[in-house]
């Protein structure tokens, strides 16, 4: 499998505030062509920041990125501003969490899609509109022709997200980034969008990085899962391996705290404590203060990702105890 995305030792530090915040700390990820990777983690674990780094959407003045991000063989961090603009939307595009906010309220969705198409390709407005119409059919928007002339507020949440997906796919990117695209939708619409994404991914051979904090969603859509905690990847592997045999105590905690497994009247399992302050990470494993297995050593060194099975890695020095 050829690599569509290869992130190596990526760190992102925001320097805008009084103290620098290291939101992403030495993340390495790879994504094969036509593969779906779910980045799983709670708020503030750095999953969205990692995702946005792929398009270099962070304000350059207030953030610092190190490491390398290679997409289709090109280093994203080395692109010139002009190359970057062509790269965004053309090679990699993104769907956002809240389509109401991600679509410009004063233009029709059709106008926004044709704008994106004509930004990347020299085609006439009429042809661009035909493309937009075909995209709307593809994402199964009912009466697509009329919907092209609708304003974002005239559509339902699910429809808006479909329009957003059409917009993201407008210029035939090879990598799609999805930043919790189903979080703002209700449960029935959520599954429709996931099925649609899965179907489009198969048909178009897209590689997708899908950020979510919902384990169920990750299982539904992804081939592989990478679990993030405090800006680091703590475990990654195939969906099956990670869900059936989690090795990192944090992943185990996450899976144990699912509501689905609880019986009526049970207390829900939780992970004690709260995520660490990113401006002052503990010296060793960031999860150690909350971990029931933590040994003195855990508080001293940052455990590297180690093989725990075929294509399954976990960053814990006590993996032996989690089998």
């Amino acid at each position: 499998m050829t690599e569509a995305v290869a992130i190596e030792n990526l760190s992102v530090t925001f320097t805008g505030g009084s103290k620098p915040v290291r939101a992403v700390d030495g993340v390495s990820l790879s994504l094969g062509q036509g593969e779906v990777l779910a980045l799983l983690g709670e708020s503030g674990s750095g999953k969205s920041v990692t995702l946005r780094s792929l398009l270099r959407l962070h304000p350059p003045k207030r953030s610092r990125m190190t490491g390398s991000i290679r997409v289709a063989g090109r280093d994203v961090l080395e692109l010139s501003p002009g190359e970057l603009a062509d790269f965004r939307g053309g090679v990699v595009s993104m769907i956002f969490q809240e389509p109401m906010l991600a679509l410009d309220p004063v233009y029709t969705v059709g106008a926004q899609i044709t704008e994106a198409i004509r930004r990347h390709e020299k085609i006439s407005a009429a042809d661009a509109r035909k493309r937009a119409l075909a995209l709307f059919e593809r994402v199964r928007i009912p009466s697509p022709d009329r919907r092209l002339d609708a304003y974002p507020h005239e559509m339902s949440g699910g429809m808006r997200q479909r329009a957003m997906i059409a917009l993201a796919l407008a210029c035939r990117p090879s990598v799609l980034l999805a930043d919790e695209p189903t979080t703002a939708l209700d449960a029935t619409v959520q599954i429709q969008i996931l099925l649609l994404l899965r179907e489009l991914q198969r048909e178009l051979g897209l590689s997708i990085i899908f950020v979510t904090h919902d384990i169920g969603v990750a299982v539904e859509i992804a081939d592989r899962i990478a679990v993030m905690y405090a800006g680091r990847v703590v475990e990654s592997g195939s969906v099956r391996d990670v869900i059936r045999g989690p090795r990192h105590p944090y992943t185990r905690g996450l899976l144990a705290s699912r509501v689905e497994r609880a019986q009526k009247g049970d207390r829900l399992e939780t992970i004690p404590g709260s995520p660490p302050d990113l401006t002052a990470l503990p010296p060793g494993c960031a999860f150690a203060p909350r971990c029931s297995l933590a040994a003195p050593q855990c508080r001293e060194i940052v455990p590297p990702l180690a093989e725990v099975g075929p294509a399954h890695t976990a960053a814990c020095i006590r993996v032996a105890e989690t089998v």
Partner: peptide
């Protein structure tokens, strides 16, 4: 600061056209 400006950047719009259009 709104998402659609980010979304426009994410689909490759340059600063000039973001200001002009969005």
């Amino acid at each position: 600061g709104l998402d659609y400006i980010d979304a426009a950047r994410a689909s490759g719009a340059k600063a000039g056209s973001i200001i002009r259009v969005h």
